[in-house]
Design a protein around this nucleic acid. Structure first.
Lengths: 338, 338
DNA sequence: ACACTTTGCACAACCGATTGTGCATGTTTC
DNA sequence: GAAACATGCACAATCGGTTGTGCAAAGTGT
């Protein structure tokens, strides 16, 4: 029977009920009562009372006084792909395990939204802020530094905070080698080339993956033409348009493609379908992972970033700060469908 | 140059800098200064100062005093499918539009985790709590009621708070009709039946979808056997196992399947593949949506739940409370690939 | 019986904002 | 020129916890 007007229970109410003082109630409820030499008997009484009355501490008041919010924040480009949503989910689980409350904000790969979200999180006094796939991680780190809050980068590196990212270069290299192996096994001619498509030319990960791609080809004695590298951004439509344009100058499909994200893959597949092609006409390796796509198309090779490990490393750094700002941890992705 | 020891700026600091009082600074910064007859000149001075010094209000203090946290909470089964992650993303966007801060917690379809997350959110004094796909929404509503906090249900209905859900029954009916039309068009024999697979027999949505499924078949003069309805839970493995078991008693694949979620689809597809079947051997309608699957397999029929509309309806109810607890809003899903 | 220590708790000052109220000036009215 | 009103701001209480400190009463030693 909670009436709207009935204010929530406070330690002052409990103190009255238990005929003791608010400070004693507080000590009992936050666990510091042993240290404060509160008797077992009184503690039990208060705990029982709190339980039966359904008391729940006001976190704002606690945070205000303790100058610790118990909140940890993350900014994320978006939720709706397997990689980022998995990051959010593991982040939350690990935060909870540490008694922290996780808050996550989507910022759509937009620097202005990233800053705005960071500002809000700092206003809520997060104890630590993780920038995931941020287009401008260093500005976020600066904002955090001014507020005296720890910051970390995930997925994309920054120079002003420690970063945990995938080993993009070697992952791309291994994926490319797998593609080339597959072509060899199929007896396909390498002369048709392999197209690298998707991602942002300006972003660190895409650049690294391109280098890994080229490196693998070099190892196999293959040269790589600039025209075969199309970082057309992270968007299905853009990939579709880019492939369309690419194919205008060609008579045949490339033998294989290195597709730099599932969202780009979506555009590729749509273009193939609309152009009357089958997906199996081209060998595809995707630097990203989606289980349904894997089930639907088992020949698809994919690099699955090790989200669990990355989040573990992230919290290892959070638990033990004092990392140099430039620290870079690279986690090897796992190849699937090889 | 923020030193670690330097505490964050407060209105007291600003008051000293501007040679005025904290209450005046507060009024200026929270917009109530006109009403309080603070002069334009002083207001400008304070605003400029706050800007240049990078002041940001302590939300805990504000929340404590105002007895309004500015936070709105949502519990969610999980992030990693397109439906729920899209819900989270739209929820956040709409919340931000209203100046609210959204916090989302994953509870893995586990009633205990649901309660625990709700408890935390109430401790942070959320102004409203949305239970999405909750296995036990009514308990959450009760907890909220005791705390004097509004609660709403999304995706799955409850009896103690207004609910916004998909029109599962009619959506399933329309999807089933589309499946039957497709079978007719292909000249397939109906006698092989259509298998309904996936979801939880106990959950409202699955039950409704089963009814819609049966209704559509009845409309076409088809009887439905209990054995052709397999609500094997939301999990790829369970769907795979269920299909395996189902097929042990049959010599041929069913002509079509009504797959009750993309996660079940994953298991179905894996079983087909492992059993040497092609996905095109069976007509599939999936009550769920995934754009990559749609691209990879355009023949797949899917019911896409209208997340945007549902979230709009949700916030319409939040903006204007005073709905009867039992209110049920049903939003029609959209059929894709028909 | 006296000094000394331990036990058990209450007091009160915060944390940083918000807001009802009061009180000097300055301006208008008749 | 006095009363009446408006302007512009400061004071202080408050939200609900946390925590340093103080002080009785009970226990211990001699």
């Amino acid at each position: 029977m909670a009436s709207d007007s009935a204010k929530r229970l406070t330690i002052y109410d409990l103190a009255r009920f238990a005929e003791t003082s608010p400070s004693t109630v507080s000590a009992v409820l936050n666990g510091s009562w042993k240290r404060r030499r509160i008797s077992q008997k009184l503690a039990d009484k208060i705990l029982t009372l709190a339980q039966s009355e359904g008391y729940s501490a006001n976190m704002q008041a606690r945070a205000l006084r303790r100058e610790r919010s118990g909140i940890i924040g993350m900014i994320l480009p978006l939720y709706d792909n397997r990689y980022f949503s998995s990051i959010a989910q593991h982040f939350e689980a690990q935060a909870r395990k540490r008694g922290l409350f996780a808050i996550v904000a989507c910022t759509n790969r937009d620097p202005a939204q990233e800053r705005e979200a960071a500002r809000m999180m700092l206003a809520y006094r997060v104890e630590c802020l993780v920038s995931t796939g941020a287009t401008d991680p260093d500005t976020i780190s600066l904002m955090c530094e001014e507020a005296g809050v720890a910051s970390l980068n995930l997925d994309l590196p920054g120079s002003k905070a420690p970063s945990i990212i995938s080993d993009n270069r070697d992952g791309a290299r291994r994926l490319t080698l797998a593609i080339l192996d597959r072509l060899d096994a199929n007896g396909a001619a390498h002369s048709d080339g392999v197209l690298f498509i998707g991602g942002r030319g300006e972003d660190h990960n895409t650049r690294e993956r391109i280098e890994g791609f080229i490196k693998a080809r070099t190892e196999r004695g293959l040269a790589t033409r600039d025209a075969d590298i199309l970082p057309c951004d992270y968007a299905a439509d853009k990939a579709q348009v880019a492939l369309e344009a690419y194919m205008r100058h060609r008579t045949r499909l490339p033998a294989a493609m290195f597709v730099n994200s599932t969202i780009a893959l979506e555009g590729i597949v749509r273009w193939l379908q609309q152009s009357g092609h089958q997906l199996d006409e081209v060998t595809v390796g995707c630097f990203d992972w989606d289980p349904l796509a894997a089930a639907l198309y088992p020949h698809l090779m994919m690099a699955r970033q090790s989200v669990e490990v990355m989040i573990e490393q992230l919290f290892a750094m959070i638990d033990d700060p004092a990392q140099a700002p430039g620290t870079l941890v690279e986690v090897a992705p796992e190849l699937i469908g090889i």
